[in-house]
Simulated scan of single mutants.
Amino acid sequence: MTRDPEIDCDELVEIVTDFLEGALDADTHRRVTEHLGQCDGCEAYVDQMRTTARLTGTLRQDELPPEMRDRLLAAFRGWKADTTPSA
């Protein structure tokens, strides 16, 4: 039996939401857990994502001032544009 390749930091960032939501298959979950045991940076990142999800999970849309919503949407749109590879 061949061992699956280790997960690297970039791959972990891509699947962190699925990891936190318990949506990964058992093997991928194991590989993520192994990576977190060896990578302090990713462990800190996952902890930050857990905290963010916990804190923002209590925020209702009507509690967010319209100007803050607009700023957040603009920031995410800009982030997406900045990370899209050019052809």
Rank of each mutant, 00 (worst) to 15 (best):
I7Y: 01
D8P: 00
D8T: 01
D10C: 02
D10M: 02
E11F: 05
L12A: 05
V16M: 08
T17F: 07
D18T: 05
D18H: 08
D18I: 02
F19H: 11
F19E: 11
L20K: 00
E21K: 10
A23C: 05
L24I: 06
L24N: 09
A26W: 01
D27V: 14
D27C: 09
H29C: 12
H29Y: 07
R30T: 12
R31E: 11
R31W: 05
V32S: 06
V32K: 02
V32T: 04
V32E: 08
T33I: 01
H35G: 10
L36Y: 01
L36T: 04
G37R: 01
C39F: 02
C42A: 11
E43R: 11
E43M: 06
V46W: 04
D47E: 13
Q48K: 08
Q48T: 15
M49D: 08
T52L: 15
A53F: 03
A53D: 12
R54D: 11
L55H: 04
L55C: 07
L55S: 07
G57L: 06
T58D: 09
Q61L: 13
D62P: 13
D62Y: 08
D62H: 11
E63V: 01
E63N: 08
E63H: 09
L64K: 00
L64Y: 00
M68K: 10
M68R: 12
R69I: 12
R71S: 15
A74F: 03
A74D: 13
G78Q: 12
K80R: 13
K80C: 11
A81T: 08
D82V: 12
T83H: 13
T84S: 10
T84K: 05
S86P: 15
S86Q: 13
A87V: 10
